[in-house]
Amino acid sequence: MTKVHVTTTVNGDPVEFLADPRETLLDSLRNSLGLTGSKEGCGTGDCGACSVTMNGTLVCSCLVLGVEAEGAQIETIEGMGGDTQLHPLQRKFVEHAALQCGFCTPGILVAAKKLLEENANPTETEIRYWLAGNLCRCTGYDKIIRAVQDAAAEMRGEAA
């Protein structure tokens, strides 16, 4: 099995790895680059725990091949907050107890961040449908939705 050399950018850093063509981007991130914040919950694109952005588009990294990352810009949960400051969504998730086990949390944060970039003031329904591909089995989603709403309000400069 011949591996392919892949050069890509992850969270702003240039990186290289060797990928078996059958290997997913999720596997490459987790096993070749040590970025284990993206999770595998299903491997079929149904749970969203592996959500990352590729060239600015929200995708399931379990449904992207590692070799497809050649030349791309990848953003993962590890790049979300910056080195010293959390993203408002990260803070609001902790404040609102929007996580219980925390396994779906990285994927939901990455997805929610993308939502707020496209829509600074989403309705509850818009948030729920945007996040429909991110399964959470612990919370019943209530506190997740509230945390996203509160983070959005803060980012708009409004008091929640």
Partner: peptide, 9 residues
């Protein structure tokens, strides 16, 4: 077809 993530692909 699928989620927001699937729509990206």
């Amino acid at each position: 077809v699928g989620s927001t993530q699937i729509q990206g692909r």
